[in-house]
Design a protein around this nucleic acid. Structure first.
Lengths: 374, 374
DNA sequence: TTGTAAGCGTTATCAC
DNA sequence: GTGATAACGCTTACAA
């Protein structure tokens, strides 16, 4: 009885050897031959929801496993014009400081049946070189966590390439965008600190490469000016630990003394600033000096720091980016949308803060308070 | 005179409109038509080092830019059997704790003209599901920073898929491997601490998912036993900050007192342990208790911690992985190789250490001391 | 150097 | 439900 079943198996192993010898790949045609059906029948078996008889399906699948057959995605994408790949443009810096971003994005994209083709950028300026590669690989869409010029945007439109820009707001451009409102976050932080009586601010910005940090700085400066407080001392930073200490010293030097509060463009700089203030300069934080950052990175929550900071809702943002892109790809939605999330204030313990009642949320955005509805 | 040149431009714009209307892509055939050459001539122009006349090249390139033509990588890979894509399998945990790994790998792979197709794993066990996708996408090779079973390895061989396993040593398998010697690192740390007089150890391991942490634990335990010291108290951990504090308390509870030293499977756990010891339990580190970790993550170097730890040479390891894989892909090198790097000891200031002379490097590996050469 | 023509391994469109 | 056949957009002998 076992003999009756052998022919197929035997044929399959023989064929596998032959295929290997010819340096070919196992194709749907080979499977068809073994299964005793047509090549198109094999193709249908691998297309979810196609009409195939139970019997055909079983024989094809059996032959396929015997031959280790897997459909070739390149050939498929040639005819379907769908690669099921999404390009992700991300700066090394972004991945370094927000490693969870990649994980979240990747999960959401995979969950929608697509894969991530990764393009990491040393600097934001590398976008040019990288985009040329992106076009070649026939990706179905792009998520760009990097700054794109007007020309870049235009090229995406010319090529009808679905695009979602992540954490970079491009005004005057009709582009799908997911971002955290860093300007608002900067304003919010300045408001909360001002409300607690801080008057003289120091600001450690990000380097010129980081639009995120500069938005935060701008927001804080705007709000400080609106409140009629003394002009803050602004110094540049590189987004890293060392910049925190350097920035703090630069601010003290420029000011000829210790400011009331220092706003840092990122948590890592804030932690650098904090360590320097406490351990090098012997300052009492927050007694003599308040220090605040942005991002709520993991260490900001550690006992040694417990930093006053603002959290970007990364998981939500990642989910939104994947959703927006897939809507354009799969449902050909044409309307562009900008989803802007607010940062969440984390009180921490490195800044003196007034009770929240004194600074209602709307005040933080600089908008007039709404009239009570009832 | 401008009119003489217009026909080509005019023809191109007209053709672009038509192509868009037909919902086709711009192909090399379209370019050929505009340039007035054959399709194969266009193909040759995009193949580096092909023989094309200066004139033909210029006309083709002109037509190509007019039409926004870019060769289709899917079609190319179909015929060349090269996708120029490399799959990278990485656990979310690995990316979270070693974000620079991704950047380094990506850079090296891009530098060799290949792209990274990213497959992130929630847990190491997800490898199964993910591998099925990997085969479809016709990648040229795979770097796996995840644990692979013997069956997985066998499948790679059956499919003749080049593979480099990263930071997981698979004994009894002929597989290209790049790793840090975590066993040795564990032994080294135990040796250095023992040499400084620590006798009673506590060990906070990684969870079962992390082979890295368990190798480290095994190495430390081995060495402690060899030295005839009391058996260490070993408690599990999740690789995160919280596990450090929980682990410390569990160890103290089991031991009925504070051990001489605690070895943590990762820096983040070590930092958690350190914060708990100092700020919660009021212990003097390293006066009453030594704490050490592994990895030399960025925060370990911050003033507040200055952790005793061991660094994996990540940049070198990433470079080695890319090199090994590309050698197999591009030069069809068949010999498998295991490149194992040693971790670098970072003294830090959270453990009491004896001067190095007392523990020469070879002793740390458990090998007999070499006879002096001179 | 250039053009012709035969694939690469699928999916899609038809008749049957 | 199933099987021919024509794409998809490219590379690569081979002939000219």
């Amino acid at each position: 009885m076992t003999k009756a079943k052998l022919p197929v198996e035997h044929c399959a192993t023989e064929m596998k050897a032959q295929i290997a010898g010819e340096h070919r790949r196992v194709t749907s045609y080979d499977v068809a031959l073994v299964a005793g059906v047509s090549q198109s029948a094999v193709s249908r078996c691998f297309k979810p929801g196609a009409s195939v008889s139970k019997d055909t399906y079983a024989r094809v699948m059996h032959a396929a496993t015997l031959l280790d057959y897997i459909p070739n995605a390149a050939a498929r994408s040639l005819i379907t014009r769908r690669s099921n790949m999404v390009a992700l443009l991300i700066t090394n810096q972004a991945n370094l400081y927000y490693p969870e971003l990649l994980a979240e994005l990747s999960q959401h994209i995979n969950a929608r049946g697509k894969r991530v083709l990764l393009f990491t950028l040393q600097r934001e300026a590398d976008v040019d070189r990288v985009l040329a590669d992106v076009w070649q690989y026939q990706v179905d869409g792009v998520i760009a966590a990097a700054r794109l010029s007007a020309e870049h945007i235009a090229e995406f439109e010319r090529r009808r390439m679905p695009l979602v820009v992540f954490n970079r707001v491009l005004r005057d451009h009709s582009v799908n965008t997911v971002a955290c409102d860093h300007l608002e976050a900067g304003r919010m932080l300045a408001s909360r600190l001002a409300a607690a009586g801080h008057r003289q601010f120091g600001i450690i910005g990000g380097d010129m490469d980081s639009s995120v940090a500069s938005e935060r700085r701008r927001g804080a400066c705007e709000r400080i000016a609106e409140l009629g407080l003394p002009a803050p001392v602004v110094v540049p930073g590189q987004y890293d630990y060392r910049s925190g200490a350097l920035g703090l010293k630069a601010i003290i030097a420029q000011l000829g003394g210790v400011p009331d509060a220092i706003i840092c463009g990122s948590d890592v700089m804030a932690i650098g600033c904090l360590d320097c203030a406490r351990h090098e300069l012997g300052l009492d934080v927050p007694g003599q000096l308040s220090v605040a950052g942005f991002d709520a990175v993991e260490p900001s929550n550690w006992i040694s720091y417990n930093l006053t900071t603002l959290r970007q809702p990364m998981p939500k943002m990642a989910a939104a980016a994947a959703e927006l892109l897939c809507a354009r790809i799969d449902r050909h939605e044409d309307e562009t949308e900008k989803r802007v999330f607010s940062a969440q204030f984390i009180e921490g313990a490195t800044a003196r803060l007034a009770p929240l009642a004194a600074t209602p949320p709307r005040a933080a955005t600089g908008l007039p308070l709404p009239v009570a509805i009832m």
